[in-house]
């Protein structure tokens, strides 16, 4: 097997990289693919918590790289999806514990075992990020419709473009969009962000309180029905698998009659 290694990155912290990684992983696994989630945020690991697997972590990525254990020993199988595994980051080390060469070797090994290898990169553009993208052929850039996040995403895209030989394609996910705010011209729309960044869109995820609830439960929203963010992540997974899936209609009119008239008169472009 020669799987696809996809790095999830953003530049700015707190835009939902780890949440997106977990959900894309779960959504891909739900389509039947075998998936490995790799937490490259060494020293500040969180992916295990989002997946609800923190109590099962015995070995980690650094243990594998430093040959204290076999790769298979370090992979933690998901509670619900047997075809989904997590390779946790080390908590008591820092990002210098792994270098780009080691990461490439590791990704190669993972590609032989899984159809998809999703790498959650740390925030920033320094060595941690450089190592995270070292073994990847594709990138998913996460960004929220805020100026600081867009600027950092632009920087990341510039760095990814500079490595065209390795990173064959990169696509954008606009996270935490609030249709109401876009409609009232208080927030940049998805098209605004795309205009600015000139990049291919992979998906749009609405702001959703369910994300907080799911994080607390350790069960990513993509695994549960009837959440809008979960559906958005499942669509992203289908697009990653090459399906043509239309963007979510986020324009659900809610509340008072004035809002509905406004929506009708001025349909929001997200």
């Amino acid at each position: 097997m020669s799987g696809r290694v996809i790095v999830v990155t953003s530049g700015k912290g707190g835009v939902g990289k780890t949440t997106a990684s977990a959900n894309i992983g779960v959504a891909l696994a739900n389509t039947g693919a075998s998936v490995a989630l790799v937490d490259m945020d060494i020293g500040l690991r969180n992916l295990d918590i989002l997946m609800g697997l923190e109590n099962r972590v015995v070995y980690n990525l650094v243990d594998v790289v430093e040959e204290r254990c076999k790769l298979r020993q370090a992979l933690v199988r998901d509670k619900r999806l047997p075809n989904l595994s997590l390779l946790p980051a080390a908590q008591t080390r820092d990002k210098t514990a792994v270098n780009a060469e080691q990461m490439k070797t590791l990704c190669q090994e993972l590609r032989n075992l899984f159809e998809f290898v999703i790498v959650d990169s740390p925030a920033g553009i320094e060595s941690g990020f450089q190592n995270a993208i070292a073994g990847a052929q594709e990138a998913v850039v996460i960004c929220t419709p805020e100026m600081s996040a867009v600027r950092d995403a632009d920087r990341i895209i510039g760095l990814l473009e500079a490595r065209k030989e390795e990173i064959e394609q990169y696509r954008l996910v606009v996270n935490r969009i609030r249709p109401n705010m876009v409609r009232n011209a208080d927030m940049m729309s998805v098209n605004d962000v795309l205009d600015i960044l000139s990049v291919k869109l992979l998906g749009v995820v609405p702001e959703d309180e369910e994300i907080i609830i799911s994080t607390n439960k350790g069960e990513p929203v993509a695994g549960t029905d009837n959440t809008r963010s979960g559906l958005a992540f499942r669509n992203i997974a289908r697009r990653l698998r090459g399906e043509e899936v239309p963007l979510l209609d986020l324009d659900v009119p809610n509340g008072n009659w004035l809002n509905r008239i406004m929506t009708f008169l001025n349909p929001v472009k997200v």
Partner: peptide, 17 residues
């Protein structure tokens, strides 16, 4: 604890939060 290990044995906390 998230996990307790004694010698080569491991016990982990229950999954329900």
């Amino acid at each position: 604890p998230i996990q307790i290990r004694i010698a080569s044995y491991i016990a982990r906390s229950p999954d329900s939060s």
